[in-house]
Design a protein around this nucleic acid. Structure first.
Lengths: 239, 239
DNA sequence: ACAAAAGTGTTTTGACTACACCCATGA
DNA sequence: TCATGGGTGTAGTCAAAACACTTTTGT
């Protein structure tokens, strides 16, 4: 199958061979004001015109699946550096109404705060939704989304990947709210503080919040060394 | 693409449409005499003749991916009832030398003891290998295998799925050896016993081992209710 | 002063560890 | 009677839970 692409260098439309009957779809998670959000796109043509769904695309003949996912995300958000992981393949014979198409699901975690400042997002028909705003999506995208949320909930308790949703500098409360939102639980502040600090993952930036109408909290960032260590061998966040 | 299949009812060869450029490959784990094993098949034709690899096959146009995996396993082992889970898709452009083929990896856990008694396995060129006997496999099958082992190690600590490798009736030591082998760790017997019994997952069968040259151990089976409960909501087996 | 969130301290409970020890059975 | 694994008991340690409390800052 031959599809048209926009070349990043020249901006021209080029034609490339892509794989037939296989696509990728990405769940892009963001975190803003204590709420977990997902980035959806509006379908502008075809039988699903006007409905919303996950961003996705085709896999080129000569690129890996991971690369295809990275490319799609880069084209949509302009962000190069994000956390991206394959979920699994979704292949119900009836999932796509116009023929047999298997899709490979991915999910990404982005620092929304960072992204907002930068360029990105020329696609006017892309929009952030909080999880409870998400209604009926195209094809099996609701299934992919709910699977990815389930997966995120598991992963977040085994590796410190959730922190990829936070800005570079953050407070302890922000982390706690993140965990509360993602896992849909209530946490005890004192105990949470102690637990997270004991992991040695956080570096005290010797800075404080500004312009808050309460005692300013210390700002932290991650120690990339410890982060890598904990991500590799896993940590136990049985909060 | 059209491929030949053997119809299960009539035994005749039928032709069916299958998906192009997508296959499935299955890692089948067994457990025997304290050792984790994997079932491999010898490739009898083509450029990989004589080499060993994971059992796999094509996906029919009208079947789900999970079904394809079940079918392949059923054809090979004769076992209907096994634990089967998708791993992920493997899609390096160069993974298959004769063209671009994406494969979807699965892993299965079977009760080898049960299987040995039953029929199954007409394929003469299928053989069990312990993990350290596995050498150079075709394509990227070593990668799929090592990924599945890593995945199994994670899963086994979060849900009681490892028990699918054990026979219907088993002793506490067998479970312990299973965990020791899969996770490659040493465990303390008294502590392990208490921990596993406290989970209430095991049912005392009021039976004992026979013909062992030491004190006979109690036999247990699983409580399917608790098993389901623990599998769904996860358990913490941070042994 | 008050609201709001930051941050500390303390008690209790219960799990996990390490290791000593006794029991049953076939060779 | 010895080897082998089955099975129980216990003291010490450490983490988690629950919750009372003090501190800082803007309005």
């Amino acid at each position: 199958m031959v599809k048209k692409f926009i070349d990043e260098e020249s901006g021209k439309v080029v034609e490339e061979k892509v794989m037939n009957a296989i696509t990728i779809d990405c769940v892009i998670f963001g975190f803003d004001q204590g709420k977990l959000e997902v980035l959806l796109v509006e379908h502008g043509s075809g039988i699903s015109k006007g409905k919303w769904g996950l961003p996705g695309g085709w896999i080129k003949e000569d690129e890996s699946i991971d690369n295809a996912a990275h490319r799609v995300l880069q084209e949509l958000t302009g962000i190069e550096d994000l956390y991206l992981e394959q979920l699994k393949a979704f292949g119900d014979p009836k999932r796509f109404p116009l023929g047999r198409v298997i899709t490979i699901g991915y999910y990404a975690l982005i620092k929304k705060a960072d992204y907002d400042v930068k360029a990105g997002f020329t696609a006017s028909d892309a929009k952030w939704y909080t999880m409870d705003q998400v209604k009926d999506l195209i094809y099996d995208h609701n299934e992919i989304l709910s699977y990815s949320l389930k997966h995120l909930r598991n992963r977040v308790r085994q590796a410190p990947i959730g922190f990829n949703l936070l800005p570079e500098k953050f407070t302890l409360l922000q982390i706690m709210q993140l965990y509360q939102e993602v896992l849909n639980i209530e946490l005890d502040k004192p105990n949470f503080r102690r637990k997270i600090l004991k992991m040695k993952l956080l570096v005290d930036l010797k800075e404080k919040e500004k312009n808050v109408s309460h005692r300013a909290a210390k700002l932290y960032k991650f120690d990339p060394e410890i982060y890598k260590q904990l991500t590799d061998k896993g940590f136990n966040f049985e909060i």
